[in-house]
Structure formats: structure tokens, C-alpha cells
Amino acid sequence: MTKTEVAKTEVAKTEVAKTEVAKTEVAKTEVAKTETAKTLTAPAAPVAAPARRVAASRLAAGAVVAGPLFLAAGVAQGAAREGFDFGRNALSQLALGAAGWIQTLNFLVAGALLLAGAAGLRRLLGGGPGGTWGPALTGVFALSFWAAAVFPADPGAGFPAGAPDATVLSAHGTAHLLAGTAGYLALCAAFVVLARPLAARGLRGWALASRLAPVAVLAGFAGSGASVVAFTAGAGLGLLWLAALTARLAAGAPQPAASAVATDWNQAPCEWGAGGPTSMPSSAAARA
């Protein structure tokens, strides 16, 4: 090979090397553009998603507060009202008499809080399991409280003071009973439906309890003929379980603990020798 040919070959190699360098620079530029785009767009999703979840959780808090508040107000009234006997009278009867407006307001407030809770559950669950029917059935339960406020229960069992022991069923009393029955049947169905998102989050114990809760609630209603206390216990259990499972769903899925090995690899310093890395994470070293 002549000197001229050798020179041409060297020039060709140099051009090839320059081309490879240029390609590398172009690739680096594209990577930099991609990283820049990610940096500019990434904050929107992480900020928006928690903001939506916080708003949904605040609405769902209505269903968490409604039951305990309604029951506490009812117990306080029952203890203060003359002639009221928890062993003979249902909390609904507190809407009767001169101070009945307090229990009527209690029904209205509870219904509003439950409606807010249903809306919060709808946002929390989205299009996931139970995300449509669970909140919808909870909303029906909420509306039954407003119906109970509009159509009061009938007097009886000595309350209000001076009322006869026997209860004569009226039109508004019938409407009150039907509203309560429809509402609690919807609530029991909601418990079964909402067991799905609980199970999907790995909360199998909660899911099982949510499927069993309707049995206890309906057992209380079935025993109301023998004891008003059984009815009150069943109704109260339904309100309290709704509060508990709503709070659990609002809390989100349990977060698994971070892998110790991954943490070691991410945090441990790594020194390179002639043949590759010369150090390893402590956990990996222990297994080596």
C-alpha cells in the first residue's frame, strides 16, 4: 500500500470517527430534550392527584362523621327527654313533641353529611371496583334520612309523655318505616359492594367484615319485634360500620415496606477497580 493510500485510509477512519461522535452528540441531545420535557411536565400529575384525593377525602369525611354524630345526638336527647325509654322507644320518636325539632334537624344534618360522604366515595373509588354502585347505594341511604325527617314516626310506647302504649300506624308513620327500610337495605347492599375495593386494596379482613356486617344489621331489625334495643343496635351498627369503612377507604391502600436490598444498592457507595465494582451493599455482602 502506497503512502497516499495509507493517508486516504487514515482520513476515512477519521471521518468515520467524527460521524460516530456526531451521532453520539445527537443522541445525547435527544436524551437531554426528553429529560427536559419530563421535568417540565412531571409536577402536574403528582400535584393534581393528591389535591383531588384530599378534596375527595374531605367529602368522604361526611360519612365518617354522620353516624357517630347522629347517634350521640340521639342518645343525648333520649337521656334528657321526659318519658323516653331506650328499652321501649326508637330514636326516631325523638322527633315528636315540643323538642322534636332537634331530632328532625339531626335527621337533616345526617342526611346531608351522608350525601357528601357518598360523593366523596365516588371520587375516591373513581372507575374502580364498587366505584359506581357503592356510592349510589350510600346516597340512597342518605336520602332515607331526609325522608324520615319529612315523615315522622308515630307516637307510642308512652312517648311523647302521655302517649298510649299501643302505636296506631298513620300515613306518615308508614312512610317513615318504608323510608327507613329502603335506606337500610340500600346500606346493607352498599356494604357488600364496598367490600370489593377493600379486597382490591389487599384489606381482606375488612372486606370480609363488610360482607358480614349486613347480617348483623338485619338481625337487629329482625329482632325489633321482641326488643327495640335490638333494632337500635342494628341501626347503630350500620352507621358505625359505614363510618369505619369509609375512613379506611379514604386512607388508601397499605404501603409495602421498602426493600432493604434495594435501599442498600441505592445508597451504598460503589468503587470500581480494573475488573468492575469492588464493593457491594452490606445485605448483599452478607448473602455472598
Rank of each mutant, 00 (worst) to 15 (best):
G117T: 01
S282N: 05
A226M: 09
S57Q: 15
L169P: 11
A262I: 09
L237W: 07
A147L: 13
A157V: 09
L105W: 05
T246G: 04
L242H: 12
A61G: 12
F221G: 15
G180I: 01
E35P: 01
G134L: 05
A233L: 13
W241K: 08
A72R: 04
K13W: 15
G220K: 06
T232D: 06
A190H: 05
E5D: 15
K3N: 14
S227N: 03
A284T: 13
T246K: 05
N89R: 00
G180M: 01
A90G: 12
W206M: 12
P256W: 10
G117V: 03
L108T: 06
A45R: 12
Y184S: 04
V54R: 15
Q103I: 01
G162P: 04
Q77Y: 06
A262D: 15
V168M: 11
P281M: 04
A213Y: 04
N89K: 00
L108F: 06
L113T: 00
L94S: 01
G117N: 03
K38M: 14
R196A: 15
L121M: 10
A257D: 13
N266D: 12
N106Y: 00
G97V: 04
A142E: 02
M280P: 00
G236W: 02
A186P: 02
P160L: 09
Q77I: 00
R211C: 13
G220W: 08
R248A: 14
C188Q: 03
G276I: 04
L245R: 08
G156I: 04
R122W: 12
P43D: 10
T246F: 05
G67N: 03
T181C: 09
I102G: 00
A195W: 08
S259K: 09
D165M: 10
W272M: 12
G126W: 09
A274E: 15
L245T: 06
L169T: 15
A157G: 07
S224G: 12
W272L: 12
A189F: 07
L94N: 00
V192L: 11
A230K: 05
L124W: 07
D154A: 10
A209T: 07
W265C: 07
L185P: 07
V64S: 07
G127Y: 03
R123I: 02
A222L: 14
